[in-house]
Design a protein around this nucleic acid. Structure first.
Length: 573
RNA sequence: GGGCCUGUAGCUCAGUUGGUUAGAGCGGAGCGCUCAUAACGCUUUGGUCGCAGGUUCGAGUCCUGCCGGGCCUACCA
């Protein structure tokens, strides 16, 4: 049996994610996981909240909570939203878990023993008023280049010039506004990625099938300037995984924690360990997904992420695993996404611009969002959400093409034959043509899903739905019923089976609606169709069904206009 | 500044290694159907493929320059 390991980039703990975040990793990962399961793979699909780092500490402080409490609470909020969006994780873990502490420290120790970690002393800006070192972007001041007074220490957003924090005029803390900043010396662990450059380069070269977006970013980092640079993997923070621990092959890191980008990808593995523990499994059960010397050699590992995460997944995380000298499973395929924009601009968490996951579910069921987001996924370039497009797409595709098909067939059957699959009548050339067309499109659909070409797959699925309407028009059971009721029965029997088939094929995109259709059809068989003709006989004559409630209500112009105004900026809570 | 991506019908996007008259869906127009969520089907209308050069028998596709949009640039995550 094919075994597929799927991970989605970890959503950061700091607040509720917007639709752009969702479509950038978790949602397409779920689509693929559901599809692979439907095709009979053994699937392990994990995700987690990414809980460490400066923003988490600051968000907790703003909320007046201890950071551990804040993270616990936000983890539950995100887990609940993920569940309500139908994200079918086998486990949704936490990067702050005890498993991740243990494994992160273990890998760091291995790297240290392998000589791949060194202690580097550097200078950083410290804010006594805040009681913490400030990352460059948490220092604000006047840009020496253009005079913009809110330039950040890493870059001026006004003139886009890159800056050093010490170059800012009148620098201040972006957290407190304090101006008594000082430069202090501090010691950090650095991962000697440069020592692994050759191996990483060869490894990337072996991935000829990866999207350009993915490999070009990795290549840039590998070859730019002096090549891959070593990277600091610790920070002067309280909240995180301690960098000084029993058995650590270095001294003097007391009070420091690992950098979030060191421990976050390791959580993919740890989350699988958490899964094992939560489900009464053994260590063996999770290691067979991750250790190539313990059963993972035939696992296919696919990662999903936004393009901003690519360097960490193509370079530093593989460097961590390779450098450990242990037999960890490396990623086989990376599917990365561009960004989704919102109505002519960017989604903005800080300005509350755009639609966030909780708000989306307040106004419409998850399947509406899933369908639009996936069928417009920003695969090749940034794409844009507009309410007009969303309304048109949902009304046309879901309500008119699919929903109405289910409605017209089941209601016609109920009024003419009752709520059971009618018997009698013969199939003819129309049905043969339909089956041939379906088989062809099904193969195309599978090919696109296998290649994780999401928009193309959505287009093919929609075309499969359209075939049903074309067939009904051609076969015209309402006309046949008047002369030859048996012929009408044969047509409707096929059409009812088509509904069941649509539910099965559509489930990766719209799982909740598919479930409702299957329930209405009282179908027990939800297996992926190996043979279309056979799949269209699954519901036998006499099989009972119910006419389902309206599957997809249309979005009215009034509702669209209201939401358009409501989400234009300034989160309403 | 550097690297990469991107610009194709009103809108959202396909266009394989360069190969005839550039495609799909939506929208617009017309016709048909009447089972259905005024839904469905058929036909049809839309494009100097960002601009200017070049290579070639042949360029949406390759090269150069320019213009526009985006991302990354290693201490946000």
């Amino acid at each position: 049996m094919t075994r597929t390991l799927i991970t989605s980039a970890l959503p950061y703990i700091n607040g509720i994610k917007h639709l752009g975040n969702l479509v950038g990793s978790q949602l397409p990962a779920d689509l693929y996981a559901r599809y692979r399961r439907a095709r009979g793979d053994e699937v392990m699909f994990v995700c987690a909240t990414d809980e460490h780092g400066t923003p988490a500490e600051l968000a907790a402080a703003r909320a007046g909570q201890a950071v551990a409490d804040y993270c616990s609470e936000m983890h539950e909020v995100q887990a609940d939203l993920a569940r309500r969006f139908g994200l079918s994780f086998d486990h949704f873990g936490r990067s702050s878990s005890v498993h991740n502490h243990r494994l992160t420290q273990h890998l760091a120790a291995r790297l240290g023993e392998a000589g791949l970690i060194e202690v580097v002393e550097e200078e950083q800006v410290y804010s006594p008023a805040d009681g913490r070192f400030l990352p460059d972007r948490y220092i604000e001041g006047t840009c020496p280049n253009c005079g913009y007074d809110k330039a950040r220490g890493d870059q001026c957003e006004e003139c886009t010039k890159q800056l050093e924090p010490t170059a800012l005029i009148e620098p201040r803390s972006a957290i407190s506004g304090a101006t008594d900043l000082e430069v202090r010396k501090t010691r950090h662990l650095f991962l000697r990625q440069s020592a692994l450059r050759e191996r990483l380069d060869q490894w990337i070269d072996s991935k000829a099938d990866w999207p350009v977006l993915t490999t070009s970013i990795a290549k840039k980092w590998l070859h730019d300037g002096d090549g891959l640079r070593d990277r600091g993997i610790t920070r002067d923070l309280d909240w995180g995984i301690p960098a000084q621990f029993e058995g650590a092959p270095w001294e003097g890191m007391a009070g420091k924690v690992f950098y979030v980008w060191f421990d976050a990808p390791i959580e993919y593995i740890s989350a699988t360990a958490e899964w094992a523990e939560a489900n009464g499994k053994s260590e063996k059960d999770w290691k067979r997904w991750w250790k190539t010397d313990e059963g993972a050699e035939n696992v296919r590992y696919v990662q999903f992420m936004g393009k901003d995460n690519v360097p960490f997944h193509t370079l530093s995380f593989p460097a961590t695993l390779m450098g450990s000298g242990e037999d960890w499973k490396l990623v086989d395929y990376i599917k990365s996404f561009n960004y989704l924009n919102y109505d002519g601009g960017q989604f903005s968490t800080s300005q509350g611009r755009g639609v966030f996951m909780d708000q989306a579910l307040e106004i419409l069921p998850a399947d509406y969002w899933r369908w639009w987001l996936l069928s417009h996924a920003p695969e090749n370039s940034d794409s844009e959400f507009t309410w007009e497009n969303f309304q048109l797409s949902v009304n046309k595709d879901l309500a008119d093409v699919l929903g109405n098909f289910v409605s017209r067939v089941t209601k016609f059957c109920r009024s003419r034959f009752g709520e059971k699959v009618p018997e009698g009548g013969d199939c003819g050339p129309e049905e043969e043509a339909l089956i041939a067309a379906l088989a062809k499109r099904l193969r195309a659909y599978e090919a696109h899903m296998d290649a994780i070409e999401i928009r193309k797959a959505a287009g093919e699925l929609r075309a499969i739905w359209v075939l049903g309407n074309e067939y009904l028009q051609e076969a015209a059971p309402w006309a046949a019923f008047k002369q030859d009721p048996a012929r009408a029965a044969a047509i409707i029997r096929l059409a009812l089976n088509l509904i069941r088939l649509y539910a099965v094929l559509s489930a990766p995109f719209i799982p909740e609606a598919s479930q409702r259709i299957l329930a209405a059809m009282q179908a027990e068989d939800d297996g992926w169709p190996e043979d279309v003709a056979a799949a269209l006989r699954a519901l036998a004559p006499g099989h009972g069904f119910r006419v389902p409630e309206v599957l997809f209500a249309k979005i009215s112009d009034e509702a669209r206009e209201e939401w358009q105004a409501r989400f234009a900026g300034g989160r309403d809570r």
